[in-house]
Amino acid sequence: MNPRLDYGRLFLNAYVYAVLAFVLVPIAIILPMAFSEPSYLTFPPQGFTLDWFSTYFGDSRWMAATWLSLRVATLTAILTAVIGTMATYAMVRGRRGFGSVFQVLLMGPIVIPHIAIAVSLYMFLSAMGLLGTMFGYVLAHTVLAMPFVVFTVAAALSRVDADLEAAAMSCGASRFTAFHQVTLPLILPNVASGGLFAFIISFDEPVVSFFLAGIRDKTLPRMMFDDIEQNLTPVIPAVAVILTLASVAIIFGTALLRHRAQRMQAIGREA
């Protein structure tokens, strides 16, 4: 032990832990409420029940919203991963003619507030008759998630030596075969983690869904929004528990994917 106390460091640590408490406490408090008996939210929780989970799983509106969100998020993840990977590959390995337009379009959904995107899409999709349809949600969420997939894939592609494809082609592979046999296997974990990211963005997207939803076809975030706004029952904590468990699983999943990808690409770069 250092005999001289380092007050600066002590203070810094205390401050950091206080901030972390600020970050964690709200989540740590809401989760146990899912098991509390009263129909209003109190802390500490009283009694123990799984009723709120059965309410959630038994309610056709919650189930419909959950399934809709799952379907939308899955399609969004696939669509974003495919379109994003194609465009990024062309941008990184092609002639960079449209580079600046590409950049601006990617910044767009990050910079432009979601409320603006939501309102403009509301008008656009209602004109197209797609309001409240799954297709409308998927289109909207694909736009919102696109930048994150592109960044993930671009980072991966920049780690894969372009000469690997040249080598494959000198071995007789066509451009497509070279991509398919060499580059794609090396970036696939990143494409998948980008897709997972898109899934989460879609699944947890409240603003655009808020405007696009009709009366029946509500996504899960929209259902939660309405519930919080109107009665705030312990179904919300129950959903929170389920979502948090899913998030933790996905975090581990993506961390694993990223780890694998970087190991592979690191080898690719050295090699």
Partner: peptide, 20 residues
């Protein structure tokens, strides 16, 4: 002629072995 149809052997500066 595209590179893949020239039937040449090529060795690159970095070894460019397919890591997977």
């Amino acid at each position: 002629t595209p590179a893949n149809r020239r039937n040449l052997g090529m060795v690159f500066q970095k070894y460019t072995l397919f890591p997977h």
